[in-house]
Computed example of a mutant assay.
Amino acid sequence: MGSAPTDPDTPTGPMPAADFVAALRDLSDRYWDRHPFHLRLHEGRLTKPELQLWAANRWYYQRCLPQKDAAIIANCPLPEVRRHWLDRIVYHDGRDAGDGGARNWLRLAEAVGLDRAEVLDERHVLPGVRFAVDAYVNFARARSWQEGVASGLTEMFSPGLMRRRLADMREHYPWIGEEGFAYFTSRLAVVAGEGRSTVDIVVQHCGTREQQEAAVAALAFKCDVLRAILDSIDYACHQIAP
């Protein structure tokens, strides 16, 4: 039997770099900045128990990010990419105990009134949040390293959101001590640069149409993971007695 005919209207060659980046950026509407929970957060309409639930569940995401990044490194055969990506693990885990982005998130959890022990033992982590985050880590382990890297391109959408979140939380939740915002202030210093360098890696190493489309799908998957996290938190917040 002969092979199936190729549809002449189906593109087979790689997208030009500008079109590829545009396809990635077009996913910004799927980012979690417009989720109803985040809208309430920015408008100052969350109660203290709701902020605590958010902080405790977001902790699970934060603490799993180094495992996701380690999976990408394990799958990548290129030492120059591995060296570059290693900085992300160091950023989140810190070079020493008590440092790093994960520890800064614990400071936020404490600033909203949680005890560090109850965050670390994950008693407040919702099943839907755990399922979504674990799916993200498993995605990085099972898929190509290019897809794993591309999934992190939500960084393209986050610098403006993070600046606005910091300003809105300072305004609407003045009872949160300034030490609780260390995660956001430190993250702002690196997220824009990480986003640009990640785009460069994806564009350089996704040289075929198939790889490019897989990268776009990976970023869409990550957006869905983030929204699933907030879906679970948002639903649980509606069950909290006023």
Rank of each mutant, 00 (worst) to 15 (best):
M1W: 08
G2F: 06
A4I: 15
A4F: 02
P5D: 09
P5E: 12
G13E: 11
G13S: 11
P14K: 03
A17E: 14
A17N: 11
A18C: 00
A22G: 01
D26A: 15
R30H: 12
R30A: 12
D33A: 14
D33S: 12
R34C: 03
R34L: 04
H35I: 11
F37L: 14
F37T: 07
R40H: 03
R40A: 13
H42S: 05
E43L: 12
G44K: 06
R45P: 11
R45T: 04
K48D: 10
P49E: 10
R58M: 06
Y60R: 06
Y61A: 12
C64S: 12
L65G: 00
P66C: 05
A71E: 14
I73K: 05
L78P: 03
E80Y: 11
E80N: 10
R82M: 10
R83I: 13
H84K: 13
W85C: 08
D87I: 05
V90F: 07
D93C: 15
A97L: 15
G98N: 08
G101H: 09
A102C: 14
N104T: 10
R107I: 00
L108W: 13
V112R: 11
R116T: 05
E118R: 01
V119Q: 02
V119H: 04
G128A: 03
V129M: 03
F131C: 11
D134N: 14
A135L: 01
V137G: 02
N138Q: 15
A142P: 03
R143I: 08
R143Q: 14
R143L: 00
Q146E: 13
G148M: 06
S151E: 09
G152S: 14
T154V: 14
F157E: 09
F157Q: 02
S158R: 06
R165H: 12
L166T: 06
D168A: 15
R170L: 03
G177V: 05
A182F: 05
A182V: 09
A182G: 03
T185G: 08
T185I: 07
S186D: 15
A189M: 07
A189H: 10
V190K: 08
V191P: 00
G193A: 13
V203A: 01
Q204C: 01
C206A: 04
Q211N: 00
A214V: 05
F221S: 02
C223R: 00
R227G: 00
A228L: 07
I229D: 01
I229C: 07
I229A: 02
D231L: 03
D234W: 07
Q239D: 13
